[in-house]
Simulated assay, not measured.
Amino acid sequence: MHYQKQSISLQDQIQQLKARGLLIVDDSFAEHYLKNISYYRLAGYWWPMQVDKVNHVFKPNSRFEDVIALYNFDSELRILVFNAIERIEIGLRTRMINHLSHEADPWWFENSSIFKNPTHLLII
C-alpha cells in the first residue's frame, strides 16, 4: 500500500491547525507537545472540538491549551485506574496464594492434581 500523505514539519502542523480554526496562542508551547506527544495522538483529544470531521474544521473558541488539558486529565486518570487495578490484582493473587497454601498444599503451584487443565498452569 502506498500512502499519499507526506509528513510536514512541526511549524507546518501548527499552521495547519490554526488554518482549521484551532486557537494556538503560543507556538513554542504547541511545538513542544507536538514534538513529544505527536500530532496523531493529540488528534484524538481535539476530535470532539471539530465541527466538521471530514475537513477537520474546529468549532469556534477551540483552544490547543484545552487539548493539552484533556490529554493531561486522561493521563492522570489512566495512572489512577492502573494503580487501582494493580492493588486489586495483588490482593486477589495474595488471597488465592494464601487459600491454596493452607487448603491444598504449600507447594500448590507444583501440584498439577489440583488444576482442571494442568497444561495451562498460571505462573505467579
Rank of each mutant, 00 (worst) to 15 (best):
R41T: 14
G44M: 02
I124W: 08
I85L: 12
D12Y: 03
N72A: 04
I123T: 11
R20D: 13
F29S: 03
L80N: 06
N111I: 02
P118Y: 00
I24K: 05
I90W: 06
L17P: 11
L10R: 07
D26E: 12
L70I: 03
L100F: 03
I88F: 14
H2M: 14
G21V: 11
S9Q: 10
N83S: 12
R95F: 05
Q11P: 06
N61H: 11
S62E: 04
R87L: 15
L122G: 01
V54I: 13
W46V: 03
N117R: 00
I88T: 13
E103H: 13
W107S: 10
L70H: 04
A43F: 11
E76A: 04
G91T: 13
K116G: 01
H99S: 03
P106I: 05
F29A: 01
Q16R: 09
M49L: 15
M1L: 09
S112N: 10
V25K: 10
H56K: 13
L70M: 09
V51C: 02
E65Y: 08
V67Y: 11
V57H: 12
F109P: 01
Y45N: 02
N98H: 06
Q50C: 08
K116W: 00
V67H: 08
I14L: 02
P48V: 12
N61R: 02
S112H: 11
W108E: 00
Q11E: 15
K59V: 00
L17F: 10
Y39A: 10
V81H: 01
S38I: 09
S7W: 14
L23M: 14
P48N: 03
Q13A: 03
H120F: 02
E89F: 05
D105H: 04
Q15Y: 05
F29Q: 06
D66A: 12
R87G: 07
L122W: 06
L100T: 04
V51Q: 11
L70V: 05
W47F: 09
T94H: 12
T94K: 12
L121S: 04
F82Q: 08
N72T: 05
R78D: 06
N61I: 03
W107L: 12
P118M: 01
G44R: 11
Y3T: 08
P48A: 12
I68A: 02
E89N: 13
L92G: 05
L22Q: 07
N111D: 07
S7K: 14
W108A: 11
Q50K: 14
Q6N: 14
S101M: 01
M96I: 15
E65M: 03
Q4M: 13
R20A: 11
I68L: 08
P118F: 00
V54F: 07
R95G: 10
M1K: 08
E86G: 03
Y45T: 10
L80D: 02
F109V: 03
S113D: 07
S113A: 04
R95A: 15
E89P: 03
L23Y: 09
V67N: 07
V57S: 04
F109W: 15
E86D: 12
V54Q: 15
